[in-house]
Design a protein around this nucleic acid. Structure first.
Lengths: 393, 393
DNA sequence: GAGGTTAGTTCGCGCCTAAAAATAAGCCTC
DNA sequence: GAGGCTTATTTTTAGGCGCGAACTAACCTC
């Protein structure tokens, strides 16, 4: 439903956006190909590209023969037009990365976090941003995207809620500002930024309706409907982990019973295994422990793994039934570990819990990016703004 | 994400749509109020309303004093500009209704269905449409909306899949055409049309993110995200009933185990009660039986009801977690029956299974329309087309 | 009925895209 | 190697659109 009026200027804005997006996603194109791809007349494609070339947003990228006629001049987004910064706020550390417009990583700064203290996080982000900016004109940076744990309420300024790490209505955007960052800021949930990365550069490419399911210690999703990340009324949408899947079942860290996370998250899987073998073998870190569990040939281990696959399949099936995506991408470190050895079984479990018809429409695939894609996805946020508005600033 | 170029004509189209929608939803408005409400300049508001008046889409609707100055002339959508037809294909019969553009019901035709045979349904629809059209110029009918059980795959022409009544890829749109209907046809899932009615005229009014949960013998939902009904890749989205909620639990008619419908649908609630009392008291129809169960003071009945409330709450909580709506509307005949006596308990059960933050954003209310709203909602489909395109045809 | 106030209309401007025409830049043939 | 052919891009022209400013209409008060 359209809800707002349009003026003549909006036309140009939209057509610039369409053209720029086509160039960004489908590589170098000639003006003529652009005209075909976007539906714009050759005349308009020419004027708009002319404008964008003048502004430095585009550059020529060689030419190709056209059998018999004038060769086509290829155009592409100018990687050096500006930069974007992506920040990944993880549970143990912060990563700040600088990219050019072709999303080539130019520099990285890692900082360990001793405590998930909001003020500390804001300070580290600010200093990290300063550091990656060394030698770069700050005015040519389009913005800073920040991927954080928990849900992000987008309002006047972004506020973070993360029950599990004790962040209750943390005004992170304001705090980062206060710590000295003056660039445009875009704060978003880490699962959503990782999902964005997967949609643009990973297994989600080309899908208009997709669910990116991320299984780590906990579980989360990013839902893309009609090409747009689904956010809900207050950006809380996508709390897959605390979906009730076994009514009255295991207690979850959120306080409720029977949450998916209490069965299919890596921590929960390992806990179930420890209970089953009555042994507290927590000397290993979770990732190694899960690897060991997945490759173990003991009957108990196999049972726990199979059960986990069943729960995970049911959880995915619920997503398939509710969202009817054309693609489900399974990611996250635990998701990838499970998927590497059990993808077929996960698909089968999904099939047995999903309705036939929506299940028949979906392709379930493994993610192509790992958790390190959070920063990449975050960096795409300011880039997405550029593509949507068709102009910097 | 914008995906298609725009021409100068699109401006007018969009602005007509914005203006027409404002008039339809917010009753009679003066040109000046329209200008304010839509953001259009007074000049443009005036030219466009002039056009729409000329075309007969609008009519004047009296005037109101403006303290001291020229009075405002109120405008509204001309109810007599055209008609829309809504069809409700239920399990036991077909209802065809004719409305004017103010959605005033002008006539109704009911037909009993002896069998849910697609060809029979198509024939009955065609003859029903003929009958309600008696005395009405067919050319002034904007279209026929059809609400059907099962999911509707929107493609070249609509195809219906309804596993439970044995409809497997029924090309209903083509069949209705073949039966002689030449008007524009819009086929949609009945839950979605009922949800549409609730959004336009019921408890969903004004919400941009809402879930309409319909509990009858089975259960289903319509999800509205950002003001638009969420359809998914192939319009299968919203299969709430077969969400796994009790892993490994009761067998559902879909073949899987632990589906919500196997616990919270009216048929399932009654079945659970019958099992509990070890008595097959199926002499009553479902609606009376449920009423009796809900008012019974026996301990067993109360236990079954309370358990059902718990499952229903968990099911709603999953929706709250996943979609983060600002409103959940509980409807359907069984939903209304439960809600009438147990709404507080349902809200409490939802609260105990949902995450605190998304739950804090949502209002859970009872539907204002009953199952008879399927036809109303279906009739809004062609109307929505009119509002979106800003022009007939 | 003169002056004031608010609502709605008209007109000129600047901007937009599309279609048609012109130009540019290669290839091919003789 | 000159003319013709083909294809890509730019220029020109025409038709639309929304906006701001100026203008007209329709009421009120004194």
């Amino acid at each position: 439903m359209v809800r707002t009026r349009a003026t003549v200027r909006d036309l140009r804005r939209q057509n610039r956006s369409v053209l720029l997006t086509a160039l960004f996603l489908d590589g170098p194109l000639s003006r003529q190909q652009l005209s075909l791809a976007t539906g714009l007349s050759p005349a308009t494609a020419s004027t708009i590209t002319g404008e964008l070339l003048d502004e430095g947003l585009l550059v020529e990228a060689g030419s190709v023969d056209s059998d018999g006629g004038r060769p086509r001049v290829l155009l592409r987004v100018n990687p050096a037009f500006g930069y974007v910064i992506g920040v990944d706020v993880g549970e143990t550390g912060i990563k700040v990365e600088l990219f050019d417009l072709a999303m080539t990583r130019l520099s990285t700064v890692d900082r360990l976090l001793t405590a998930l203290e909001p003020a500390l996080v804001a300070d580290l982000i600010a200093s990290g941003v300063d550091e990656v900016l060394a030698g770069v004109e700050a005015s040519s940076v389009l913005g800073v995207g920040v991927g954080v744990p928990g849900t992000v309420e987008q309002g006047e300024s972004a506020v973070v809620h993360a029950q599990t790490i004790g962040w209750d209505a943390v005004p992170l955007e304001k705090m980062i500002r206060a710590a000295g960052v003056t660039l445009p800021l875009l704060v978003e949930n880490g699962a959503k930024t990782q999902g964005q990365a997967e949609m643009w550069f990973g297994a989600g490419r080309g899908a208009r309706h997709a669910v990116i399911a991320l299984v780590g210690s906990g579980v989360g999703i990013a839902v893309v409907a009609g090409g747009v990340v689904h956010r809900g009324a207050t950006s809380n949408a996508g709390e897959w982990g605390h979906m009730t899947i076994a009514y009255g079942g295991r207690r979850c860290r959120c306080g409720a019973r029977g949450c998916l996370e209490a069965y299919a998250g890596a921590s929960a899987v390992l806990a179930r295994y420890r209970e089953a073998v009555r042994r507290d073998d927590s000397s290993l870190d979770e990732q190694s422990a899960l690897e060991e569990l997945l490759t173990s040939r003991s009957a108990v281990a196999r049972r726990v793994v199979d059960e986990s696959v069943g729960y995970l399949g049911a959880g995915i099936a619920n997503l398939v039934n509710l969202f009817n995506p054309e693609r489900v991408v399974l990611g996250g470190w635990a998701g990838l570990a499970f998927g590497a050895v059990k993808l077929d079984e996960i698909v089968a479990a999904t099939s047995s819990h999903a309705l036939r018809h929506p299940f028949g429409q979906v392709r379930i695939e493994l993610a192509l990016t790992g958790p390190d894609a959070v920063a990449v996805g975050a960096a795409t946020l300011p880039l997405a703004v550029l593509l949507e508005t068709g102009a910097p600033g």
